[in-house]
Design a protein around this nucleic acid. Structure first.
Lengths: 194, 194
DNA sequence: GGCCTCACAGAACGATTGTTCTGTACCCTA
DNA sequence: TAGGGTACAGAACAATCGTTCTGTGAGGCC
């Protein structure tokens, strides 16, 4: 028996707003059901299917599948939960997709268009894993003149250089040590709605 | 009085695992405090500072600052929680940053380089809000020949057209009706680590 | 040494929780 | 028309919740 999708999405919208799964009584109001027993019925069904689960202290919380966002691949199958070709399963939270180690991860807002040709635009948020070293070819966040700079990390005649992705900007050839703040592991862009 | 950071991070770790704020009794165990009254004391302090809050049905949940990821603005202040210049507050979860209505939001993986000049690269995930209409200038996901196409939505001599952001590709001038799947509201890119 | 404040412990309490059980209206099938 | 499942409503109940109140020991200050 398929899960009642509208009940689930009402819960998801509530959770998106408050980051909490409410009590059975409140879920009932949300769903337009006044019998807690019947709410319990649905909840246990959602639990079986992995959309909800109990925390160690028996509190009701979202399950692993609760955060699945549909990854629509082709229009024909649009609407169906669709396996993600990249990791073999559905994309879960975007946070989880991008952030592996929260404690070492920062966001940096991009200024300027020096990395335009790498698809990095002004205003984008760069997801950075903080670490003092990098591999050749990585996009790094370096500290130059007390400012963050996002550039390709490359080698040129034995020296490390910072190369922009825009022909209008020069390659940076830092004298002395090159201070690396971290390595870019992701990018987030929000598009303004009109 | 500054918030006790270790208490907060213990809560954050618990929440990261279970997506739920536990009861006062469980929080007490988590913190090594056996008096619920004193837990309540701390909780109310966290609530005042925006790390926790009550949902409409008085359930305890994470507050707006609970998910703060450091938005590092300048190297000098790197590491400190830093106000986000864009919305006047810290960036919260990336999910919340991008997704307003989970039930209407899908992800679509980009194929090809037809939107390259708009900073949309192959393999990126487009965050799409599903809706049958769009405004001129929006980047839309349209359905053409049973395939998703990401293009600018524009008007040309009274007709709607789909314009790529890459001179190597032609403008699409669909005959008959133009089926719009949704409007792009965000973009997520994961960079492969070496 | 006396007093005060801080940092918690512990108990009491009504409210709310999830569970369980019974009741009932409405199809659907035979 | 009878019978049975489905989809809820409603009530009862013990357990647990958050709140509040009182108690207590350790440290700081005068």
């Amino acid at each position: 028996m398929p899960v009642d999708a509208s009940y689930l999405s009402k819960l998801q919208d509530y959770y998106a707003k408050h980051n909490v799964i409410p009590s059975y009584a409140t879920i009932g109001k949300l769903w337009g059901i006044s019998a807690k027993s019947w709410v319990a019925n649905y909840v246990s069904r959602f639990k079986e299917e992995g959309y909800l689960k109990l925390a160690p202290d028996r509190r009701l919380g979202p399950g692993p599948r609760f955060f699945e966002r549909r990854l629509a691949r082709s229009p024909i199958r649009a609407g169906l939960p669709d396996p993600d070709p990249e990791n073999g399963y559905d994309v879960v939270t975007i946070d989880n997709y991008l952030v592996k180690q929260p404690s070492r991860t920062s966001l940096i807002r991009v200024k300027g268009d020096s990395m335009m040709d790498a698809g990095i635009l002004e205003g984008d948020l760069i997801v950075v894993e903080q670490q003092p070293t990098a591999n050749i070819g990585d996009i790094v966040v370096a500290i130059v003149d007390d400012e963050f700079t996002i550039k390709y990390f490359e080698r040129e005649r034995g020296n490390f250089v910072l190369r922009p992705a825009n022909k209008a900007y020069p390659v940076l050839r830092p004298k002395g040590k090159l201070e690396i703040f971290g390595v870019m592991v992701g990018l987030v862009r929000r598009v303004a709605r009109r």
